[in-house]
Write a protein that binds this DNA or RNA. Structure first.
Lengths: 139, 139
DNA sequence: CTTGACCTTAAAGTTCACTTTAAGGTTAGG
DNA sequence: CCTAACCTTAAAGTGAACTTTAAGGTCAAG
């Protein structure tokens, strides 16, 4: 699979895939005799994980440190299981970060909406809205 | 409240607060006779909303369009809450996807650990990769 | 055997979201 | 009065994450 096809499949620009290679997020890959990169289908999995991790708020630096042994397909059973378990850990990390984001969003929504029974929250929301309104008028 | 105090309270650098003002995320505020900015206590909550929205993946451009009053007095609460809830749904979808990935990975690990260690490691790897592919497409 | 769509590299450019700098004005404490 | 710690501005600088450009090599079709 050449870089254009991988780009098509993954939805990422070829320049971006080459950039990730330069940055060490994906390991070095096979080259054909012409020097063209030859990718395995596994690579689009890796790209997918990178994109998801980014959406969860990880920097490329964090993602690089999160995906350590991008050893190539010299798959022994142990290596394979180790790599997969690594992925499990990494996915769990993404989930934790997303949960935090989720909780933060819910908290903000609750404060803005105000709760029917909580006078404190309502008062808070009113204050927030009043402040927003004041600042908007002034600007 | 001067900008340094607001910075202290909100955890944002003064330069960042001025930057948000320049960018139109917070309206221009009162100035003392000396020209110093005078903030109300609620401003730190506006900043909190901005930071939370950023963590949820909103760009400053999106946040700016979310906050100011383009129309009348009914401008922001519904719009803002709707956008935030939309983001919650997006994040939840991402989490579901990750849960599926997680379950798939664990199933694959269990399967590999339950197979005998024969000479067909490569065959195993191929089967595993096929599983991963199916998993990602099902998600 | 040329055309055009691919691929290669290194290097420079872009956008976003800030921060730092430069040059100054203000205010509280000794 | 002096100093230090605040505040002001405009403009330049930074780092992350890419993209674009320049200059060229490869390859299938006509």
């Amino acid at each position: 699979m050449k870089i254009g096809e991988l780009a098509q499949e993954s939805g990422l620009a070829p320049s971006r895939i080459r950039f990730y290679e330069r940055e060490g997020l994906i390991g070095s890959i096979d080259r054909g005799l012409n020097g063209y990169r030859q990718y395995s289908r596994e690579t689009s999995q890796v790209l997918e994980i990178i994109v998801m991790a980014q959406q969860a708020g990880f920097s490329l630096d964090e993602i690089r440190n999160l995906l350590p042994p991008h050893a190539k397909a010299d798959w022994s059973k142990d290596k394979l299981v180790a790599a997969l378990k690594n992925k499990v850990i990494e996915v769990a990390a993404l989930q934790r970060r997303l949960s935090e984001t989720q909780a933060g969003l819910e908290a903000v929504i609750a404060r803005i909406e105000g709760t029917p029974t909580g006078g404190d929250c309502f008062e808070n929301a009113e204050a927030v809205l009043a402040d927003l309104r004041d600042q908007s008028k002034a600007g």
